[in-house]
Structures are given as structure tokens and as C-alpha cells.
Measured scan of single mutants.
Amino acid sequence: KNAAKIVNEALNQGITLFVSDNKLKYKTNRDSIPSELLEEWKQHKQELIDFLTQLES
């Protein structure tokens, strides 16, 4: 999976991924984040940080 797909899947579940101080963060109104999503974010962390940083610049 690529970073764009992961970010879109998160958005579809009401979760916004973003970068703050070079760290991957998220915002959501959900009570909890599915563990498989958290695991996927960890596996692709640097790719996600790079992707989101490019989007914001």
C-alpha cells in the first residue's frame, strides 16, 4: 500500500493524519483506532511523514 491510499482509508474512517514536529499524528472523533490501522501506520511511518509533509508544503 502506498501513503496516499493509507491516508485516504484513514479519512474514510473519520481519521485525519498529519505531521507535527516531524512526528505522525492523528485527529479523530472516534473512541478508538483499530489496531490494524495503527500497525499499518507504524509500518509505513516514514513514507506517511514524507507524503504528508510534501502535501503541506
Rank of each mutant, 00 (worst) to 15 (best):
1 K>N: 11
2 N>K: 10
2 N>E: 10
3 A>C: 11
3 A>L: 07
4 A>S: 09
4 A>E: 14
4 A>Q: 12
5 K>S: 13
5 K>R: 15
5 K>A: 15
5 K>D: 15
6 I>V: 04
6 I>S: 01
6 I>F: 03
7 V>P: 01
8 N>S: 14
8 N>H: 12
8 N>W: 14
9 E>D: 11
9 E>C: 05
9 E>M: 07
10 A>G: 03
10 A>M: 03
11 L>M: 10
12 N>L: 15
12 N>P: 01
13 Q>S: 07
13 Q>W: 14
15 I>C: 04
16 T>I: 15
16 T>K: 10
18 F>W: 07
18 F>Y: 15
18 F>D: 02
18 F>I: 07
19 V>P: 02
19 V>W: 04
20 S>W: 09
20 S>G: 07
21 D>L: 04
22 N>C: 14
22 N>Q: 07
22 N>P: 00
23 K>M: 13
24 L>T: 01
24 L>H: 00
25 K>T: 07
26 Y>N: 02
27 K>Y: 10
28 T>N: 04
28 T>D: 03
28 T>W: 04
28 T>E: 02
29 N>D: 14
30 R>K: 10
30 R>F: 05
30 R>D: 05
31 D>F: 06
32 S>A: 09
32 S>M: 09
33 I>E: 02
33 I>D: 02
33 I>K: 02
34 P>K: 04
35 S>L: 14
35 S>P: 13
36 E>W: 09
36 E>G: 09
37 L>F: 08
37 L>I: 06
37 L>T: 05
38 L>D: 03
38 L>H: 05
39 E>K: 08
39 E>V: 07
40 E>D: 10
41 W>D: 00
41 W>E: 00
41 W>V: 05
41 W>R: 00
41 W>I: 11
41 W>Y: 04
42 K>G: 09
42 K>S: 14
43 Q>T: 13
45 K>T: 15
45 K>R: 13
45 K>E: 15
45 K>W: 15
45 K>Y: 15
46 Q>K: 09
46 Q>W: 07
46 Q>N: 07
46 Q>Y: 08
46 Q>A: 11
47 E>M: 14
47 E>H: 05
47 E>T: 06
47 E>P: 04
48 L>Y: 00
48 L>M: 03
49 I>S: 02
49 I>K: 04
49 I>N: 01
49 I>R: 02
49 I>M: 07
51 F>H: 06
51 F>N: 01
51 F>E: 02
52 L>W: 01
52 L>H: 00
52 L>I: 06
53 T>C: 08
53 T>F: 06
54 Q>C: 11
54 Q>M: 13
55 L>A: 11
55 L>I: 10
57 S>D: 15
